[in-house]
Design a protein around this nucleic acid. Structure first.
Lengths: 209, 209
DNA sequence: GCTTGTGAAGAGATTCACAGCA
DNA sequence: TGCTGTGAATCTCTTCACAAGC
């Protein structure tokens, strides 16, 4: 469930703030969702709240962490060292949360063999070796759109089963591979769509109906 | 509808490839969705396909573009010039799609007054002026989590009604302000969750049921 | 014959509302 | 009394399936 990481953040904040116990109301408020949703979500973990009291923060952190597999470490390879790739490779939050960036891939001969922000850079040809050597579990695609599918194919061939795709493309992958796509331009376009909708409606397509 | 930008991309590719006409099947394939969904989505635009033939690519590009308000330009201010903020400020794709980054905001005195990749950097105090001067429509929050809510408050006070939030926080904003949150760590955690689920199930919470 | 447009069915996710329990 | 856990109701989104039209 995509909301568990948000709950975990809210719980950590509560723990830091000194709360030892909390309610679905508080958690909902902090996580920006409905209280019933929180309770239902937590019930899937084989829930451990106390009626009339609420949830034990420490225990719930433990439960949610286990559900998310936070104990596990999933090594990440970043493919494409443009602006975004570099920012991602350099992002300290990843390692903290169990997603160390163990290598980067780029076609630029000037970068191959170098170390960028502590991350060794390899040629695409070496991707399979890199994956095998570091037990890479997740591939991040931050290449230009034209190189994205090829990169995905290489990742899949190397045995990677999870891909985070920033490339603004629709990737074709086998069923057993999970892709999550993040497209920054799309996000802005959606915001722009609503901005336009809020204008004195005489151009929006809906208003023609 | 969040899929329109994807359709627009697929249509542009088809146009570039020389297709003058296409079908919901092709579009669905390229966009990674179901064909019926494509038709239903397009029907909301006051659709203009021809039964037995399909859709005219150029005309459909026009329709989808208009629905998305692609003709409009929405100036963007990037708040927080860490790794990610810098990558975003520098991202060329934004301007191309009608979202020029007209200014950046950072607390770092060494940056204030400078120009980073062609983008002028201002102090948070000047945010209201920047928004007014450039008619900023969208605020991007790429600050550390601790500064995010304050930044959001300033953006809202300055009249910004759309926020793209990379800060890993749940923002409180008035109802008339739209927030889209992108949390990179959450994305990885969701991938990690599924990776764990695929392991020889003896640790996953579901398997306890 | 081929493809759209769409009512109806279906699947999921969300919310309600309340019984159950500390 | 207060808050959880959860069946039932609701809502939203997706998919099916087919009549309508080129």
């Amino acid at each position: 469930m995509a909301r568990l990481p948000v709950y975990l953040r809210s719980l950590s904040e509560l723990a830091t703030a000194g709360s030892s116990t909390t309610s679905s109301d508080v958690l909902a408020e902090r996580s920006g969702v409905n209280a019933a949703k929180v309770r239902k979500d937590l019930s899937y973990l084989g829930t451990h709240g106390t009626r009339g009291v609420g949830y034990d923060v420490r225990h719930l952190i433990f439960e949610v962490s286990r559900a998310l597999g936070v104990a596990n470490t999933w090594p990440v390879v970043v493919c494409g060292l443009g602006n975004l790739g570099r920012a991602l490779a350099n992002h300290t939050g990843f390692t903290e949360r169990g997603f160390p960036v163990v290598a980067a891939i780029d076609v630029n001969p000037a970068l191959i063999g170098m170390t960028v922000d502590g991350v060794p850079v390899h040629s695409p040809d070496r991707l399979a070796d890199v994956v095998a050597d570091h037990d890479v579990a997740i591939g991040v695609i931050a290449t230009p759109p034209g190189a994205a599918q090829d990169t995905a194919d290489r990742l899949v061939a190397a045995g990677v089963r999870s891909i985070l795709d920033f490339s603004s493309t629709v990737l074709s992958v086998p069923d057993h591979v999970e892709v999550r796509a993040v497209d920054l331009s799309t996000e802005l376009q959606i915001l722009g769509f609503h901005l336009q909708r809020d204008l004195p409606a005489d151009r929006s397509p809906r208003s023609l109906a």
